[in-house]
Amino acid sequence: MHLSGSLLLIIILALFSDAKGISASEIDRLFQENRLLKSEVQLARTPNIYILFDLVEKKVQIKAKGVALREFPVEKFNLAGTPIQPKPFILQNKSALLKPKRIKIKPKKIGEDALSDIPAFEVKDMPVRYRFDFEDGIHIYVRPKPEGGISTLLDLLSSLKSYGITMPVGTLWNALQQKTYTELSLYLSAEDARLLYWGMPEGSRGIIYAFTAMDR
């Protein structure tokens, strides 16, 4: 009796363990992770700074040589358009309504105090609402988390512009030209938005990691 009971249990367990399936999504996730890691190895081998927009973990990291130099939590995000592969993209342009301008130094006159005027270009001068234009038609809109009346209104207007104009027009226009178009809206704290603008010079590279089912 005992023997047959044990045998039965072993057989049932063996069958269940054998029947345990591997979900396709797990393989897709590992494939995406594989591409992300390969991209990161490629960037970490260079002496340059790069940015990882990790939408799975909801964080943005400024990195160099695989070291996370700074990390920003993403309050929320919206991703629409052509699916993005986790490969390095070059930041081609940074634009903002009030783009900070570098100060031009006027050469001093003889006898003038060299420290009377300090032309500093600092983080506090960076914008909180701006757009990063990457290659392959990827546009990242960085916005501060709406807090209070004016910022909520600005956010609503930005969303209206995005979903009512730029997304449909951009998608159609680029589709007609057989180009890809992706829009990512990232909500960060105002301080983090300024630090990200500072930390990502034009020409630097970024990886966007958004887990979606993909071609293997």
Partner: peptide
Amino acid sequence: ENTLLRRKIEALQP
């Protein structure tokens, strides 16, 4: 492979 890639990145870190 992913474990190996993670180790590769770690090895690049000073």
